[in-house]
Design a protein around this nucleic acid. Sequence first.
RNA 1: GCCAAGGUGGCAGAGUCCGGCCUAACGCGUCUGCCUGCAGAGCAGAUCACCGCCGGUUCAAAUCCGGCCCUUGGCUCCA
Length: 497
Amino acid sequence: MTLRVSNTLTGETEPFEPLNDDQVLLYLCGLTTSDPAHLGHARTWVHTDIVHRWLEHVGYDVRHVENFTDVNEKIVARVGEDGDSEAEVARNYIESFLSHMRALNLKRVDVYPRVTEHVPEIIEMIEALIEQGYAYESNGSVYFDVTTFDEYGKLSNQQVDEMEAQGPEDERAEKRHPQDFALWKAGGVGPEEIEEHRHEEAAPAEEAAETAMTFDSPWGEGRPGWHIECSAMSTTHLGETFDVHVAGRDLVFPHNENEVAQSEATTGQQFARYWLHTGMLRVEGDEDEEKMSSSLQNYFALENALEEFGPDVLRTFFMSAVYDADQTFSEDAIQEAGERWERLERAYERAVEAADDVDAHTTVEDADLRTTIEETREAFATAMNDDFNTREALAALLDLASAVHRHVDDHDEYDYQGLAGAIEAFEDLGGDALGFTFGGEADGTVQLADELIELVLEVREEEREAGNYDRADELRDRLGDFGVTVEDSDDGPAYRY
RNA sequence: GCCAAGGUGGCAGAGUCCGGCCUAACGCGUCUGCCUGCAGAGCAGAUCACCGCCGGUUCAAAUCCGGCCCUUGGCUCCA
C-alpha cells in the first residue's frame, strides 16, 4: 500500500517517494514571533504533526525542521508591550509557542532554527544570487529580479506580468520591476512601519525603533527580507533539495513562490519536492467582526482554547476536516468534536477495564470484535495513505469503539485477546499515529481527587441501597457541580471528569 | 482583472484523482425500543441527501467531458 500526497507544485495527487529510502526531510514554515498563537496556527501544527507521525508509522525516519521568524517589524511594534527589545519580545513568544506545542502533544521537531542565528547563511545566499545575476543591489537594499528566473510563478501558477507589485510603496522606486521582492533591506525599522502594527499599550514607535536589530552585510547595515530566511534555514538544515515543505495555503504566494525562486536560482537544484498546503481555519461570522461572538473570539486564542477544550478535543476537531480543506470554527463544531472524542476515549477505557478483570487464558472469542479490529487497521491505513485522510481514519477508529461496546454489552465473559487487540489498535493508531493521549497522565492531585470521589460514591451507594434516592441524587448533583459526571451501571457507579 | 479551492441530509463532513461494493462513511441532532429507581453512557433501529443547475459520454456518474449559476480564499502582513 503506497502513500499518496497531493502536491501543490504539480497540482496532482502522486505517490510519495522520498529522496532516501528510509528518511523524509520535512520543513514547516513556522510563526513570526510577534503575536500569540491562535487556533489557525494550531490546526497547521496538528496536521503537520500527524503527517510526521504517519510517515514514522509507515517506517520512515523523519527529520523535521520548523523555523521561528524572530526578526520582523511587527515584533518591534510589540516592544514595551511584550518585552523591552525586539529580541526579548521574540524570546517570550518562542517560549509560549513551545509550551503550547507541548500542550498539544506535538512530536518534538529536530531543529527550530531562528533568523537571528542564520544571518551569515542568508548573506551568503544573497551574495550568490547577486553573483549569478538573479539579484541586484539598490540603495543598500537587495532585490530579487523576478524576470531572471524563468520558472517564477510555477508554484502558485501565475504569470509575472499579471501579478501586482510586491512590497510597500516606497520600495518601488528602488526596484527594476514592481514584482521584484526584497532579499535584504537597508537600515533598521522606521517609526512609520512600526506605527502600522503598534497597539495602544506598546512603546512609542520612535522608542521601539531604537531596539530594532540590524546586521552587518556587504551592502551596509540592514535586515534580511522575509522570504530568504526560509530558503537559507531549510537549506542549512535539510540540504538543497528536501522532500516535504508544509505551509498554510495563505503562504503559497508570495512567500513560498519566492522561496522556490531564491533557492533554485542559487543552487540550480530542485528545492522542495512535495508541497503540502493546509487549509485555512475560518471563524463563524468572520467576515463581519461584529458577528463573531465574543466567546468564539476568546477561544480563537490558542491558550484559551487549550484550557477550555484540551488537546484531544482540539485534535479531534482539526482532523474532522482533511488537512488541505478549509474548516470553520463554531460552537457547534467544537461541541461535536468533544462528543466524538469522548466516545472514543470511553471505548478505550471500557476496553481497558474489561480486560483488567478477565483471565488472560480465556478461550472466549468474539468474531465480531476480532474482525472489526482487522478492518479498522486496514481502513485506517487506507485512509491515511490517501493523502492523510484523518476524517476517515477517525471514522475507522470509531467503528472499533462500537465493536468494543457491543462486545462488553453482549458478553458475560470477555474475549481477552480481542480486548487486548482493540486496546493495542487504539494506542497504536489513535495514540501514536494521530497523537491522542488516551488515559492521560495521572499525577498525585488527580489520584487524590479520584479517591475522594470514590468515597463520596460509596456513601451514595449506601443511600441508594437504603432507598434514599433524593439524597443519592443530591450527591450526584453536587459532584456534577465540580464537573464530575456519575454513571451507574451493573458493575457499580462509574465517573468521569 | 489574475490565480486557487469549493457547492453532498437539520448541522458538520468524507467519498470525486483510479465511474460500478454510494440503495452515499463516521459523528452531532431528532425519534423509538432495550437497559435503568431516575438520568447518563451503551446497544438495536428509525428519521434525514436522488450529491449547485443544464446537457453530453457510458451498460453504469456524486465521481469523466462541456456550459452556466453561486460561494470562499490568495494576489498587502499572515499557519
